[in-house]
Amino acid sequence: MKKYTLAVLVENKSGVLAKVAGLFSKRGYNIDNLAVGVTEDPEISRMTIVVQGDDQVLEQVTKQFNKIVDVIKVSDIEEDDTVERELALIKVTADVTTRAEIIQIANIFRARIVDVARNSITVEVTGDESKIQAIEKLLRQFGIKEMARTGKIALVRGPKKV
């Protein structure tokens, strides 16, 4: 099983996300990750989808996407040189004895402290999947109360557009 990253441009209309999700359940594909947001054109949204499977699955997913009337373009950017980012908010248990160490870890990862309370610290971290996994692993020893992660978003490097 391989992972593929797809950049999908869709019409910014209600129901498109449901159709995309429905496609995965109908055809029995595994979706790893999905992030969606509006593009530079307010009428167009961009979905970044990570899908697992073999080449045949990728081919079918791409073709089935293209059949959706509201889908404008599907690009497989797995092989391209890309900038990829995810964002995570991690709320860590913290007290006087651990707070300094947590802040130190956050600094090493160029993460930001976005909220501090008597018993917790919330860290905001951006990066690729491995970086987020790494900081998560390090913060786990203090006790992670809650975590929220966006899906991966990606752009191809250089002037090329999808």
């Binding site: 045949q56 081919e59 079918q60 073709k63 293209n66």
Partner: peptide
């Protein structure tokens, strides 16, 4: 006419 049928 449907590319999705090819090699399905």
């Amino acid at each position: 006419i449907d590319p999705a049928e090819i090699s399905k």
